[in-house]
């Protein structure tokens, strides 16, 4: 196990991120070479920390809602009562994934107006698919012996679902949530083109005023957040997988 060094790097990266968000002016000399004609090196039309938090909140709300709906729906179609929907829901997931996020966002604007709402809708819809697919995989690829054992113990359907199936599928579900979160973090930046509060504002301000420093700091903050959150989810998933004694990541590798 070589967890030590990377973990240390991650902690350092996280601390640097916090420092940058709270005291960005300390980093101004680093970003100054990217500016022209004495333009400001640090985003000055809003508080970076506040924008980051609102960015994260948008992602959390949308992905959280997507997780609840997607897991609920995946449970439904894997029960006898919803089995008729299973083949169709698979193909809907496949088709849904071909919808470009920008198109979803743009189509949501006429329906609900500018601001936070279209971004939340686009992130929600886009977040559903990976979580649904992974939950489905998790629930349909349980070892049959385990399910038989649960039945043999006289568990009811509900008991089996909550005590056996969901805990065993949890690492795979978490992997879906991780994917959705990473996608949502990047997609939320596009939300700023429809006036949502978030880090996209910084990037777009940079594009409009031809200030590369803004583009870089907006992009790097989102990138670092994505890497850190993705790693955190992976660690959580690995821990859960170890607890249930199933190796999830070996399949993916």
């Amino acid at each position: 196990m070589k967890l030590g060094a990377p973990l240390l790097i991650r902690i350092v990266v996280f601390l640097l991120l916090v420092l940058f968000l709270t005291r960005p002016e300390l980093f101004a000399p680093l970003l100054e070479p990217l500016t022209q004609n004495g333009a400001p090196a640090i985003y000055n039309q809003g508080d970076l920390l506040a924008l980051t938090l609102s960015h994260l909140r948008t992602v959390a709300v949308a992905t959280g809602a997507a997780a609840v709906v997607a897991v609920g729906f995946a449970i439904l179609v894997t029960r006898p009562i919803g089995a008729e929907f299973l083949p169709l829901s698979r193909s809907i997931v496949n088709i849904g994934q071909t919808f470009p996020p920008v198109a979803v966002l743009a189509l949501a604007v006429p329906a609900v107006g500018f601001g936070e709402k279209p971004t939340l809708i686009a992130l929600f819809l886009y977040g559903l698919l990976p979580i649904f697919e992974n939950t489905l995989t998790g629930l349909t690829r349980l070892p049959p012996a385990v399910v038989d054992a649960a039945n043999g113990m006289g568990m009811t359907e509900t008991q089996r679902l909550f005590r056996v199936e969901l805990p065993l599928a949890f690492p795979v579900i978490l992997e879906g949530v991780r994917l959705s979160t990473v996608i949502a973090l990047a997609t939320a930046t596009i939300g700023s083109t429809v006036a949502a509060k978030g880090l996209g504002e910084v990037i777009i301000a940079g594009l409009l005023s031809n200030n590369l420093a803004f583009v870089v700091q907006g992009g790097v903050i989102v990138g670092v957040l994505a890497v850190l959150l993705s790693d955190a989810f992976s660690a959580l998933g690995d821990a859960a997988a170890r607890r249930t004694g199933r190796v999830v990541r070996a399949e993916a590798a």
């Binding site: 990217l34 596009i190 996209g200 990037i203 940079g206 590369l212 583009v215 907006g218 989102v222 890497v227």
Partner: peptide
Amino acid sequence: NIVQTIPSIALFGILIA
């Protein structure tokens, strides 16, 4: 993998320079 985490509008912008 890390390249994928950079939001698209930022990557497009960063390449301008």
